[in-house]
Simulated assay, not measured.
Amino acid sequence: MGRITTYVALGDSFTEGLEDPAAYGFRGWADRLAEHIEADHLQAGQPGLRYANLAVRGRLIDDIVSEQVPKAVELGADLVSLCAGGNDILRPGSGPASVAKRLEQGVRTLTEAGARVLMFTGFDLRHVPVMRLAHSKIEVYNLHIHDIARRYDALLVDLWPMTVFRDARAWNADRLHLSPDGHRRVALRAAEVLGVPVDADWREPYPVRRPPVWTAARREDLRWARTYLGPWIGRRINGRSSGDGALPKRPDLAPLTAADR
């Protein structure tokens, strides 16, 4: 696409940047993408980027479309990234078609407002215990996302075939959120889709390491279930979210500063 002067990121914990710590909280792929865009502008001697991130952990598709999308329209951004529906898909009883219908409403609203929309498919999580149970639902949802992107001429970052994300080093210990390096690689791929030059390759393989001993791997699975899976299920049963009471980290368009890096 052409020169990007304003960028607004919408979504949940993936876009908020959880588990990619920074001095100001969490960085994440969207902040990193904004930095790549900014660097490209400065390299060309152009004014910098103004950037907002409205994503909040735990948000469902209805929250994102009804609250974040209108704010992005109000801000009048050139580029809006929209990744939503993952939290819905992981909940029992949710249907990919109904979630996709709501996502399409958000894409249509943003497109009609004149923004170029950057969309994302879901990851292939068949290698993750428990998450593999949602594999088929994510796959079907991804088909809807491809169709929406095509019909609204949206840019698409297809995360599903990126085999580098099948390595545990791309993920945080909770197996739900990306590691800092995982966020770095998503930002590089998104920059590639946008045509923004970068100095690294998201395809770079991780160093080879020996697989863990079976018994050690099972002990780690049990520790993960106690530490992360149990609390996650408890929140779902009690109707709570990790983002209850949380606010967007960058609610308004503003230039990037040295503190953002």
Rank of each mutant, 00 (worst) to 15 (best):
V8R: 08
V8H: 09
A9V: 12
G11E: 00
G17D: 05
F26G: 03
F26I: 08
L33V: 08
I37W: 00
L42K: 11
R50W: 04
V56D: 07
V56S: 07
G58N: 08
R59A: 09
R59M: 09
E67N: 11
E67F: 04
V73Y: 05
S81Y: 00
S81K: 00
G85W: 01
G85S: 06
N87H: 01
P92T: 00
A97G: 12
Q105D: 09
T109I: 14
A115V: 07
M131N: 06
S136A: 15
K137D: 08
K137H: 13
I138S: 10
V140M: 04
N142P: 00
H146W: 05
R150M: 12
L155R: 11
D158T: 01
D158C: 10
W160A: 05
M162Q: 09
V164Y: 02
F165Q: 00
A168Q: 09
N172M: 12
A173F: 05
D174H: 07
D174V: 11
D174I: 11
L178E: 02
L178I: 08
P180W: 02
H183F: 08
V186P: 03
L188H: 01
A190G: 05
A190K: 02
V193L: 12
V193K: 03
R203H: 11
V208G: 08
P212L: 14
W214K: 14
T215N: 07
R218N: 14
E220R: 11
G230W: 06
G230I: 09
W232A: 12
R236A: 08
R240W: 01
A246V: 12
P251G: 04
D252H: 15
D260V: 12
R261A: 15
